[in-house]
């Protein structure tokens, strides 16, 4: 049960990134899967560099697609996804890489330390965002206007481009970091991240049905999906 809860936390936070990209940055970011995988490969060298590379790809995505509409930006993100995957294939194709992991005891439960850390980071990310969502500060209202209509937001003087850049950079950095942690103890391949992205996309799609309450209902949705699947 505890393992299920930790998994649900991680998928909920990944789904939050997918949802934010869709609603604020107006892109179904299909490169998240490859960014997740990249995190796994980078963790072979150091876990600390994963958010830096993730953020850098998020920035690349933002700059490359900022003048595009949602469809084209999504196509662009798919191109980036395949490019990252191909780069990993060229660089690491022939190696069976089993990522290191450490065992950790949590109230008598034996866990992989990196997975536990990923869950805690995800929980923090979710709590911070929910606080931001529920407290409704001015910046949250700005974000809401962008979500509803980007042209209106610009008319009101809101810097939608900055918000888009921040969302893409943070969500990509988050995906890359969680990839580095959550893939620990696994034998990785250049396509491994696709499953996590599709799963997160699935959770985000269900949560998105609840419109206004989508962010709040992400965790229960994630828990329900993890339990069912």
């Amino acid at each position: 049960m505890i393992s299920l809860f930790f998994s649900a936390l991680i998928y909920a936070s990944l789904a939050l990134c997918v949802l934010l990209s869709y609603r604020v940055a107006k892109v179904v970011n299909l490169s998240f899967g490859s960014i997740f995988t990249l995190g796994g490969y980078l963790s072979v060298f150091s876990l600390f560099i994963t958010p830096i590379f993730g953020a850098w790809i998020g920035l690349l995505l933002h700059i490359g697609s900022k003048r595009m509409d949602a469809s084209k930006a999504t196509i662009f993100s798919l191109g980036i996804a395949i490019a990252i995957e191909e780069a990993l294939r060229i660089l690491f194709r022939v190696e069976n890489i089993l990522l290191d992991s450490r065992i950790f005891y949590f109230f008598g439960y034996k866990l992989v330390f990196e997975h536990f850390l990923a869950s805690m980071i995800s929980a923090t990310f979710l709590i911070l965002f929910l606080a931001f969502e529920l407290k409704k500060p001015f910046s949250r209202l700005k974000l809401k206007v962008i979500e509803e209509d980007i042209e209106n937001a610009e008319l009101y003087g809101i810097d939608a481009e900055k918000a888009r850049a921040i969302v893409l950079v943070i969500s990509s950095a988050f995906f890359c970091s969680i990839g580095g942690l959550y893939l620990s103890g696994r034998v990785i391949s250049p396509t491994i991240g696709w499953l996590y992205m599709i799963f997160s996309l699935f959770i985000a799609t269900i949560a998105n049905v609840f419109r206004e309450k989508a962010y709040i209902l992400l965790l229960p949705t994630s828990f329900g999906v993890c339990w069912l699947v």
Binding site: L42, F45, I49, I52, F53, W56, L59, L60, I63, A87, L91, F92
Partner: peptide, 23 residues
């Protein structure tokens, strides 16, 4: 702003390539 972002991207790319260089 854009210039800095581009410079950041280029530096990032160089770091990535150096990092991933294999024997």
């Amino acid at each position: 702003m854009i210039g800095k972002l581009k410079a950041g991207l280029i530096v990032g790319l160089i770091v990535f390539l150096l990092f991933c260089a294999t024997p």
